[in-house]
Amino acid sequence: MSLLKVEDLHVYYGSIHAIKGVSFEVNEGEIVTLIGANGAGKSTTLNTVAGLMKPRSGAVTFDGKAVAGVPASKIVPQGMALCPEGRRVFQQMTVRENLEMGGYTRPASEISESLDDVFTRFPRLKERHRQIAGTLSGGEQQMLAMGRALMSKPKLLMLDEPSMGLAPILVEQIFDIVQELHRAGTTILLVEQNAQMALSIADRAYVLETGNIVKEGIADDLMHDDDVRKAYLG
């Protein structure tokens, strides 16, 4: 069953037509990845789905409800979380406060249980829960950003370039965590420039090029597709 369905999405930055009729879907329990070069429109697509940007036209259906153009703050409580590009943790707040903000839409009584869950998954965050987030390392900030997104107990977790700027060993770690989350039942939509990594853990993939989807299919198949190999896997 499809949890997220995007149909013929058009997004503009002023007069620039950034997303030109993108359609894709994410089924419950899947890991789906959008891959593509810098500027292909991956982040714009995620930001629009999450409600940070308004589409000019097109439909976004999440969990049976039309959410195109609905502001992010109203979509989050329905079970969608975006862990944004560049992590964007609240630099001047503590690790714990960051996580509390992640659970903003949930009743206070459920917060401490979710905090425990996140701390179990990311022991590093527990050690540093009183530290100011801006003083964490890049990898720790990525974990915090993911933990923060998990605090809303999302049905769909969208990750925008979680490996960006991280050392290879940390990239592995982050991708392991993504797979663990997936096994625990979270549906995942992953945007990555590191196509190799993304395809290796995804069920299905879409290739985005200058605002259009140019290819889609089973992740394994795309990994062995000549065009994809040439363009993205080097």
């Binding site: 999450a50 409600g51 940070l52 502001p71 992010a72 703050s73 989050v76 409580p77 979380a81 975006l82 944004p84 964007r88 943790v89 609240f90 630099q91 001047q92 707040m93 406060e97 509390e100 903000m101 992640g102 903003y104 839409t105 206070a108 923060r148 997104a149 809303s152």
Partner: peptide
């Protein structure tokens, strides 16, 4: 307070705050 913390979150990063479900 929750609202006060939300205020600090908004003052740091409106987009990220919106993604937390905070009505900016």
């Amino acid at each position: 307070t929750k609202m006060g913390k939300a205020m600090r979150a908004v003052s740091e990063d409106k987009g990220a705050a919106e993604l937390m479900g905070i009505n900016v």
